[in-house]
Amino acid sequence: MIEVKEVEKKFGRKKILKGVSFTANKGEITCLIGINGVGKTTILNAIMALTPIHKGQILIDGEPLKENTFEKITFIPDAITMLPQMTIAESMEFMHDFYASWNQERATELLSFFKLKPNDRIASLSKGNSAKVNLLLGLALDVDYVLMDEPFSGIDMFSREEIANVFTSHLIENRGVIITTHEVGDIEHLIDKVVLLDDGMVTKEFNAEEARENEGKSVIDVMREVYVR
């Protein structure tokens, strides 16, 4: 379980996060929803210790992040994290070199799933393909938690479909996923848990299925209630 507790974060004098708390469980897809600039990416960065927080605490399976926590949690940012001059194969080799949790079989499987060519250089990839490589590098790790930052933004329709397929496949099974988005449409049906963010705070945290079954509301319905008043 990933626990985010009362996290505060300032940029200069401006408070971006004003005491954000939520949890994300293994085996569930948790979606952070909010308009752009609300601090979704910052939360993911903070979980990975890529940016300091000013107050609060973040625990992963009950412990603060350590070096080898990176063997059980991975982050797929919205830009590719490999050097432009590297090929896809070299990027995979790099991951293989440093991560004990790298699963070469899964990586090869993802490579053919996404129809990527291993000798293509990162610099030459289309936006969609580079997002796929990014996804590949993250998902080929045998980790418990995957964080994804806006995996669908700026990507063509067909790539979106392919990526969305990942979420229903065995590639995601049993993992805890935190995904951020500002447009929930594509993946609404996949989401287990929704965390609505506004003005640096969690305005509502709810179970998507329960909302559907008990109140007959879609995620978008609930969002409308919260945001449009």
Partner: peptide, 17 residues
């Protein structure tokens, strides 16, 4: 800097920073 943010990768390596 640039389109690729390699620093993410470096900082997320399972090794002492």
């Amino acid at each position: 800097f640039g389109r690729n943010t390699f620093v993410y990768r470096l900082l997320m390596l399972p090794t002492s920073r």
